[in-house]
Amino acid sequence: MLRTTQWLLRTTAVIVIGVETLAFGRDRSATADAATATALAVSCIALALWALLEARGELRARRGTVLALLLTVIAVAAGSVSTQHGSSMIGVAVVAVVAAGTQTELATSWYIASAAAVAIAAGGLATDADTGSVLGYLLIVLVSLLAGHQRRSYRVQAEQSALLLQQVEQLRAEQRRVAVLDERARIAREIHDVLAHSLGALGIQIQAARALLEDHDCSDSDGNGHCHAGVERADEVLAVAQRMAGDGLTETRRAVNALRTDTASLDRQLATMAQEHRRLHRSAVRLRIDGDAAPLQSEQTLAVARVAQESLTNAAKHAPHREIQIVVLYEEEAVTLTVANALAPDGADAPTAGFTTVGFATVNGGYGLTGMRERLLLLGGTLTAGVDDGRWTVVAKVPR
């Protein structure tokens, strides 16, 4: 649309200039009229070739050489007769020079403008034109060249702006894609943590029930009710396991819903975990908060809570009924969570409440620690785990 408008303006300008020059010019000799008509014809032919090649898209393919040649022909032909008395052919030369400043290289545009200036000066000398008129035409050529350069600058800025806008849109699309991938990874971690905790605890209860049934075999009962008591105890354990399965499903749903909602404070979540662990696993859990508690970002709170949850599950698997200590230290630049539990000695009976020693199996050993480390690394935190002074200790640290 813009190109069509430009050509309509150019064509209209050349027609108006041609009519004014040939039909309404006065005080000119026949020789001057012939020269002007020839220059106008040459200019029109060059303009027609320019329009045809541009419409066919061949000017850009030839790197502007043909365009530069055509503009030079127009500028020289029109400039050479522009000093004729009453001639308006300088307008055709202006069209060529402006186009040169807009569409050709800088050096080429100056070359075309210089050719037009030389043609004007030569024409002025040949016709004994007034020096002021010649200088005025030369100034018009210079202003036309600068105007063409200004148009070129606007065009380049527009192209760069369009390219930058396209790059910004591509960047936003890439950011949206990365955000979707991050959200998927986050959901996977959340569901894994919830299921690993729930199913791990459920497996412990089922193994305990099987151990009770094996230890209280009714075929060897002494008739004192031991078999009946064992079955009752196993039924109680299985009831707890069934309740834990339902709780695990509920927690999974909550984990997915919590991905886009605010989470409870870290202290509150840890207190709930400690209370639930005492109820389900009959283990002493001590929670201590050191320092001035301060709210954390939801991602940080969730990460630290999952570390505590995974540590409690591991303690129930590997050291059942052993004391667990949870310490949260609020510092100025970081929050540190420490979960430590006493190790169960090999061959020793786990204390009591009707349970006998059971060698609980683990599932995906070590994967929970890997998941916790990955979660904390995303937040710039760290995680260490190992035996310290006879206690299995997990230390998680996240920056504030």
Results as ranks from 00 to 15, higher is better:
V180T: 02
R186W: 04
E190C: 03
E190N: 05
I191H: 06
H192I: 04
D193A: 12
A196L: 08
A196N: 06
S198F: 07
S198E: 09
L199I: 13
A201F: 03
L202R: 13
L202Q: 11
Q205A: 10
Q205R: 05
Q205G: 08
Q207D: 10
A208S: 07
A208K: 01
A209Y: 06
A209N: 00
R210I: 03
R210E: 08
L212W: 10
L213E: 01
L213Y: 00
D215C: 08
D215W: 12
D215L: 13
H216P: 04
D217S: 15
C218V: 06
C218Q: 11
S219D: 13
D220L: 13
D220Y: 07
D220K: 14
S221C: 13
S221Y: 05
D222E: 11
G223K: 05
G225P: 12
G225N: 12
G225H: 11
H226T: 10
H228C: 06
H228N: 07
E232R: 15
E232N: 10
D235T: 09
E236G: 08
E236W: 01
V237G: 02
V237F: 01
L238Q: 01
L238T: 03
L238S: 13
A239V: 08
A239I: 01
V240Q: 07
Q242C: 12
Q242P: 12
R243G: 12
M244N: 11
A245R: 07
A245K: 12
A245L: 07
G246I: 14
D247P: 05
D247T: 14
G248F: 10
G248N: 08
L249P: 08
T250W: 01
T252H: 06
A255P: 14
A255G: 15
A255E: 12
A258N: 03
A258L: 11
A258P: 03
L259V: 14
L259A: 12
L259K: 11
T261M: 07
T263H: 13
T263Q: 08
A264V: 09
D267E: 10
D267C: 02
R268I: 02
Q269M: 10
L270G: 14
L270Q: 12
L270P: 13
L270I: 15
A271V: 15
A271M: 08
T272S: 14
A274R: 12
Q275R: 14
Q275Y: 00
E276W: 03
E276C: 03
H277N: 15
R279V: 00
L280Q: 01
L280P: 05
L280G: 03
H281R: 00
R282M: 00
R282A: 02
S283G: 05
A284K: 00
A284Y: 03
V285E: 07
V285S: 06
L287G: 02
L287Q: 09
L287I: 04
R288M: 07
R288H: 07
R288C: 03
R288G: 04
I289R: 00
D290K: 12
D290S: 14
D290E: 15
D292M: 02
D292L: 09
A294W: 08
A294G: 08
P295W: 00
L296A: 13
L296T: 10
S298H: 06
E299H: 09
Q300I: 04
T301W: 04
A303E: 15
A305G: 15
A305Q: 12
V307D: 14
V307C: 14
A308M: 07
A308S: 13
A308G: 15
S311N: 08
S311D: 11
S311L: 07
